[in-house]
Each structure stands twice: as structure tokens, then as C-alpha cells.
Design a protein around this nucleic acid. Sequence first.
RNA 1: GCCCCGAUAGUGUAGCGGCCUAUCAUACAGGCCUGUCGAGCCUGUGACGUGGGUUCAAAUCCCGCUCGGGGCGCCA
Length: 428
Amino acid sequence: MRTYINNINNLEDGSIIEIDGWVQEIRKIKKLLFLIVRDNTGSVQVTVKDNMVKNYDSIYNISRESVIKVSGKLNKKSISKSGVEILANEIIILNTAETPLPMGVIDLVDVDFDTRLNNRFIDLRKPENLIIFKFESELLFGIREYMNKNNFIEVHTPKIVAAATEGGADLFPVQYFEKRAYLNQSPQLYKEILMSSGFDRVFEVGPAFRAEKENTVRHLNEFTSIDIEMSFSDDETVMRMLENAIAYSVNRADSILGKELKGLGYSIEEVRPPFPRIEYSELINYLNDNGFKLNFGDDFSPEAMKFVSKKYNGFYFITKWPKDLRPFYTMPDDTNRNVTRSFDLQLRDIEVCSGAQRIHDYNMLENSFNEKGLNKNNFEFYIKAFKYGMPPHAGWGLGLERLVMNLLNLSNVRESTLFPRDRSRLSP
RNA sequence: GCCCCGAUAGUGUAGCGGCCUAUCAUACAGGCCUGUCGAGCCUGUGACGUGGGUUCAAAUCCCGCUCGGGGCGCCA
């Protein structure tokens, strides 16, 4: 029976065990050879002596990254550095790897990110890359659990759509039989329709597509969006839901993977809500007091956000954004009609989430379309849901890759994406 | 879309008009070696993105193209 390598320590010294994995390292000394074998949980030394296995010659000539099955005796008093080894008495070569490798898994040379992405299947064999996606998986599990406990219904809305979500031109067109369709840039409109349907609380984890020609370390043309929408709710309520969901899932993932993460050079800080809330206009003033020249209505430049993140390290909300910077479905503020009941969640200098109280009144929504210069006829399927009993609602959308990137302090969002899609990359 | 920058063995680099028959590391192949663990030692294989131009001479200078990186706009 197969043992995963991280379980070896739980077994008794001298037991006969079997592992499956990749040959990561080979050290040869004529009639003795050491293989470091890796699976997705860790790696261990396998010691092979010429009189112990019958196919010694072929094992002696095995290439790195070949796949093998090893049976042998566990020696927990090994003089190897880890103190543990497996004394092999049978090794089956399941598949050999060609040489040389397109890139090394443990080589002592740098590899360009482009080369790594071109050979992502090998790149992901590196434990420090695999852990990013283990972390993402745990994080998402925690968020699901949190949402579930709070009575959210997980939904899946269409990704092939007929109309623009926010009226922009940043969509990928697709041919849908005889019609022109698009890849959805956000589940926004469908989440809102479900509020009218009485689902009350929904969340969705799914892809979002943006045909924007950015070329930055924080943009992807396909990313994973975690979205919620909540009826009979307001912006403050969904902000609390957000900070609590993040705190719960991050702290949970860290308690499970923290040790492994630390061993691979990542460290996660404990997340403690509530997060600071700063109004947009406060931030404009703060920046202008510090040498920036911003007007009300301007968006913050990356440089400005870097400056702000020196003051607010960690998570913080920027609230009450001007109307012009927000989509048509955003609820204006009751007291100041120039601003909206909206928020962005920042982690240091990067935006990871944005949300708002939404407009639920049909006439107000119609006006908003006009103000934004959008043709409401293109949104008939959406706007109809507002005529026959739409409850007040609020929600947000959280960028999964960006969240993981920032939590782990990665320098590029592509690091937290298995197979990134960007301005020039469509493969693998 | 705009602005910078880059492209040399499988990988990562040095070289930036003639000392280049191109450096070093790593990988790979072969050899020595019964306890390695960044194993060590010896031998070997392997590269100037592409098309023009300048020059007696181009990896090196100039122009186009292709591919890539970073920044900005924008945003998750």
C-alpha cells in the first residue's frame, strides 16, 4: 500500500513501506546510490545498494524526474541529514523522463519566468510553487465553509452572455451559433437577478474574462472571482461579511499549512478584523497633504497606493467612491449624491475586492443607465427583474489570484495562477 | 494604446568592432569512487532570434520584423 512521504515519520522504524514519486536527485557512488524521491507531500532519501535490488543497473542509469515505485525498509536512524531513509529492495520504473529537462526542478541556476511558464508542468513540481495552490485550495475551502454557515447558496451563472456587464467594450467576443456573444466579465447582473428570485444570499466562485490590454504584474485576462450578493442588506453588512470571511479562511489555511509555508519561505500574518475604513475623499486629502496632486474624481495611481500602503499595512477599505468611478448599478450615498455607497478592499497597495450597496429601485436604475450613457435596451433581461419585487441588496467580488498573490507576498499575479492568460500568453 | 528595456548551449549568464576556434555556472553523456546529502575529481557534447545595412572585419554598430520583460492608463 502506498505511503505518502509526509506520513513516513508516523511509521515505525523498520517497517516495510512503499512510495510512489519522481526521482528528484541522484547521487551515485558506484555500488551505492541515493535517490531523493518526491511526491506532492514531500521528499525522502531512498538508498539503493547493488546487491539489494535486482535491476540495479537500470536504476543506476535512471534519469532525473523519472517516475518510480519504491518498496523498502524504513530506516529512521539513518546518517543522512534528514535522519530518515528507505533502504530499497524493489524499485519499479513506471516511466522515464527524457534528458535533458527543459528546465531543472532543483538546479542551482535561475530560470526566467517566461521559461517557467512555458514549462509550467515542471515548474509546478517545485514544492514552493505547489504550496501556492494548496494554500489557494484551503483558502477557498474556508471561504465556502464560512459562506455556507451564513446561509449562502452557491450558484453558477453563465459565462457566455449576450450583453456587457458594465457597458464597457472590454469583452471577448465569441461566436454563438449564428449570434454574437461574449465571455462574461463578472457575474454581477446574474447575482442581482437572483436577489429578485428570492435566493436571498448567493455566492459564486468562477472565471471572469476581461479583454483589457494591460501589461502589468497584477492583471490577468482570465481570473477567478469570488462573488457574493446579499438581500435586505447594506454595504456595511457585506463589508463585515467580507472581512470576517477573509479572516476566517486565511487564519484557517494558515493553521493547516503555516508550517509547510514557513519551511518554503512564505509567512502569513494573522488577519484581525475589523479592517480600517477610509473614505475616498479623506485619502485624496491625505495624499495631497503629502505632495500628490489629485482632484476629487481621480483614481489612485499605483504610486499613490504604494504611499498609502505605508500607512495602512495589511487590509483596509476605501469607501464612498465618486459616482463617476463606479458602475451604473452602484447606489448613491443618501447625504452626498456625488459619492456612492461603495468600497474597495485593499491589501497593502493592491485592490483585491470591490463591492457596494446596489440600486434596487427600477426608476433610479433607469436614470443611472442614462447618466452613464448606456442603452438600457441591451440590458432588458436584467432590468426586468427590478420591476416585480427586487429587494435592497449589496455584494462584492473578490479576486482570488490577487488575494493569494498578496497574502503570500508574490511579486506577480501569474505566480498564483496555474496557467495564466495575459496580453500575450494563450498557452499552455 | 503609449513609454522604457531585453533576446548568446537544455537552463541561467560573460563578452558590447579584430585578442571569440565565444566565458562561467548548471544540466547532459562517459569515467573513477560503498554513506552521499549544493557529493567530489577527470574527459566530452552543446549557443550568438530573424531579414537587411555599415565596415577590410559584426555576437558586438544602425534599421525593420518576431518574441519576451517592466512601467503607465485600467482594474479583481
